[in-house]
Amino acid sequence: MTTMTTVPRILRLTVVGVRTHVSYMSRSPLEITFAVLVPLVYATLAVYLFRAADDPDRLLTAAVGAGLMGIWSSVLFGSGGAVQNQRWLGTLETLVSSPTPLPLVLLPITLATAVIGTYAMGATVIWGTVLFDVPLDFAHPVLFLVAVPVCVLSLGMMGLLLAATFVLLRNANALANPLDAPVWLLSGMLVPITVLPDWTRPVSWALPTTWGSRAVHAATSGGPSAGEVLAPMAVALALGLFYALIAVLVLGRVERRARAAATLSLA
């Protein structure tokens, strides 16, 4: 197969896969509720806190921040359990034995969890506007509409690494549950990372979520320069690709080991 035909096939597989999994996840009330209601509670909490702080100009930032938190939670729990879910559904063997490489099969799932997370973003922004009269005065409205999908894409690729590593751990949920709040914090989704201790800075820089959040926040309430949005977007994408590459290596090893030990379908 030539590169000319491979790339369109991969793109088609990704698009069709994302569409399929988004449809599948959207039919689950649990997924929808988790994606929307909990971030709405956080958005409400953030709006009241920002109001109490006499900072009404940043209410949109609060709503968008809560939405970003929702996207991360969706990726963390959705992608983290992606392989395990396929195992429980009894579809993992079919997926692994298909001629398509496993990372390309899993990537649409992890991207879909990030797309499902955008329900949270939409819900928190609408919630803020309708209930709290938060004006939709985005600093860069068009760039915001670009930054959110880029953030989703980079988080989806990061989710692939989560899927790959969590499958190695028997108690992946034990790791997933406490990872929620630290990534919110370290990525500056609601709190700027400048308030954190200096030693946390390298950890923040290594997370695509930090750059994705920075791009989305800059598009929401940043300065006039488009570079403030575009530069972090580029870093988020680059980091996301780097994480996806590591995930491919990890998944290759996991797959070989599971095939050799005949433990693919064993939880």
Binding site: A53, D55, N171, N173, N177, P178, A181, P182, W184, V195
Partner: peptide
């Protein structure tokens, strides 16, 4: 009830959540 779940979900998670709100509170000075 398994040790990893108990420690991760019941002990570490609430502690990290607490730190999240502490830093949010420090930023907003509420």
């Amino acid at each position: 009830t398994t040790p990893p779940m108990f420690i991760g979900t019941l002990l570490v998670s609430p502690l990290l959540q607490l730190l999240f709100f502490v830093f949010l509170g420090r930023q907003l000075r509420v």
